[in-house]
Amino acid sequence: MISQKAKYALRALVSLARVEPGTSVMIGEISRAQSIPKKFLEQILLELKRAGFVASRRGRSGGYVLLKAPEDIMFGEVLRLIDGPIAPLPCLSKIAYRKCADCQDEASCEIRHVFERVTLATRAVLDSTTLADSLRLQDLPV
Rank of each mutant, 00 (worst) to 15 (best):
M1Q: 12
M1G: 01
M1L: 09
S3I: 12
Q4V: 00
A6Y: 12
A6S: 15
K7V: 06
Y8V: 00
L10K: 02
L10A: 01
A12K: 08
L13I: 08
V14C: 09
E20H: 14
P21G: 08
S24V: 11
S24N: 08
S24I: 10
M26C: 06
I27Q: 15
G28A: 03
I30Q: 00
I30C: 04
A33G: 11
F40C: 09
L41H: 01
E42N: 13
E42W: 05
Q43G: 12
L48S: 15
S56M: 14
S56L: 11
R57L: 13
R57P: 03
G59H: 09
G59N: 10
G59D: 08
S61G: 12
S61E: 13
S61H: 14
Y64L: 03
Y64R: 06
V65I: 08
L66W: 09
L66N: 05
L67Q: 13
K68V: 04
A69C: 08
P70F: 06
P70R: 03
D72Q: 13
I73W: 04
M74A: 05
M74N: 04
M74P: 04
G76L: 06
E77M: 08
R80P: 03
R80E: 15
L81D: 00
L81P: 01
D83Y: 14
P88C: 02
L89N: 13
L89D: 12
P90V: 05
P90M: 10
C91Y: 12
S93I: 01
K94N: 07
A96D: 15
Y97S: 00
R98A: 01
D105S: 06
E106D: 06
S108T: 14
E110F: 05
I111G: 03
R112F: 10
F115W: 12
F115L: 12
F115G: 00
R117A: 08
V118P: 00
R123S: 00
A124D: 13
V125P: 00
V125T: 01
S128F: 00
T130F: 09
L131I: 11
A132P: 07
D133A: 06
S134R: 13
R136T: 12
L137C: 03
P141C: 05
